[in-house]
Design a protein around this nucleic acid. Structure first.
Length: 291
DNA sequence: TCTGGGGTCCTAGGACCC
DNA sequence: TCTGGGGTCCTAGGACCC
């Protein structure tokens, strides 16, 4: 909201208008937090739910945040909360009193540093409205009854179909395919593979089936209660290099095709990437045999 | 509340490269 | 050649969020 006061009014006035507009246009009650940082505004909106508005003035930040339970911090879930509770830490203020190194040892480097900073009111993250989704996934809970191979393949096919369509609809390609499983005892596992960027249903289905095949013994022994797939390492579809119609696993055919291309267009018309800009002799004519 | 569904991010070990 | 060093990528698992 910085610099918008003359155009839009104070942050609080903007928040009031936002709530009113959503109520009128969508018929929904929303809660809005206003503060100096993203994190504090988020906490404020959670604290004033439902249908509330809370402004945390810059000089009231400590007084607002420190007494709150640690669970209010973004990134503290059940596991982290339990770790902290075991040390007698139940409020944000108590967490803020820890040394940063201590927090990192306790919670891991990234989470420790992050939570320590938040507890001490440090949150330099800017608002970013340009982020794109980094993965898409779909899953299906199966209940506890036994499933046949055919059933599993059907579920997998449906999931791949849906994801591949979403991929193409968004003009995206993916590189990593992750199969998610949950067994009869509700323990979870993943199997993943990274391939050349693709949006082809057939390619994704093939990879997904191969991943599922690696888990077949475990599924047989333990049963399966969930199957899912997630596609990541997404990129814009137009970032793909143009594909040559060549099966790169068929080396003999590859050689034949490359020879034909060079015969017709010259030796330098096709090169291995390592040769690019490096081999001045690439265009030299081949010595005729026996001469 | 979650044995629902869709996501993000981090960690650790191993392979591999220079 | 490696009982070095630094780095990236891949895989698998897990915590957390809405």
């Amino acid at each position: 909201m910085g610099g918008l006061r003359r155009l839009a009014g104070t942050p609080e006035q903007v928040a009031v208008r936002l709530r009113e507009r959503v109520r009128v246009e969508a018929g929904l009650a929303i809660s809005v937090g206003v503060a100096r940082t993203k994190f504090l505004a988020k906490v404020a909106s959670a604290v004033c739910k439902p249908d509330g508005l809370l402004v945390v003035e810059p000089d009231r930040e400590q007084e607002f945040l420190l007494p709150l339970p640690v669970e209010r911090l973004w990134g503290v879930g059940a596991v982290t909360a339990e770790k902290l509770h075991r040390l007698g830490i139940t409020t944000v203020g108590q967490l803020a009193e820890l040394e940063e190194a201590t927090a990192e040892r306790l919670l891991g480097r990234a989470a420790g540093a992050h939570l320590h900073a938040l507890a001490r009111l440090r949150d330099p993250r800017p608002v970013d409205t340009t982020r794109r989704r980094s993965s898409i996934g779909s899953q299906r809970a199966l209940g506890t009854k036994p499933r046949t191979e055919e059933e599993l393949d059907l579920f997998l096919t449906q999931i791949v179909d849906r994801l591949a369509r979403r991929l193409r609809y968004g003009d995206r390609v993916c590189r990593t395919v992750v199969l998610r499983l949950r067994f009869g005892d509700f323990a979870k596992a993943t199997r993943s593979r990274t391939v050349r960027p693709t949006d082809r249903t057939s390619v994704l289905l093939e990879v997904a089936r191969e991943l599922l095949a690696t888990a077949r013994p475990e599924i047989g022994a333990r049963g399966i209660t969930l199957i899912g797939l997630s596609l990541s390492q997404l990129a814009r579809a137009d970032s793909l290099p143009p594909e040559l119609p060549i099966d790169w696993n068929d080396q003999a055919r590859l050689d034949t095709v490359l020879d034909a291309v060079r015969d017709r267009f010259g030796a330098a018309s096709v090169a291995r990437a390592v040769q690019l800009d490096r081999d001045p002799g690439l265009d030299a004519p081949l010595l005729p045999e026996h001469e």
